[in-house]
Amino acid sequence: MTHPSVPPVRVRLFAGLRERAGWGERLIHLDARPGAQRTTAADLWGQLALDGAPGEENAELPATVRVAINQAFAAPDSPLAPGDEVAFLPPITGG
């Protein structure tokens, strides 16, 4: 059941994670029913089967993948709010 009045969460993937998943951005409606448990970034990783292989649904978020919520680093178990932007970041290689 969707709730059109509740803004979705924007999920973003980068670099190798984006290419493995085949998409870079997706809008996801969280379970907004009263009493529903708040979805975390790590929950979304499992629900979206971002570990890659089919059958890997609900896999744990690897320690090498960092989470950003609204463009700031966040703990994987941070609960998400409607309208948040959550990004999964593979190992950073800048400079």
């Binding site: 980068f14 190798g16 290419e19 593979p90 190992p91 950073i92 290689t93 800048g94 400079g95």
Partner: peptide, 27 residues
């Protein structure tokens, strides 16, 4: 600051060689 940005500023490198791109795994 150089070390900080190499590890904590979101950049990802991909090496192109022989027409193929490979994401760099680490610094």
């Amino acid at each position: 600051l150089l070390e900080d940005l190499k590890h904590h500023a979101p950049f990802w490198k991909r090496e192109w060689s022989g027409g193929r791109g490979t994401w760099v795994a680490g610094n």
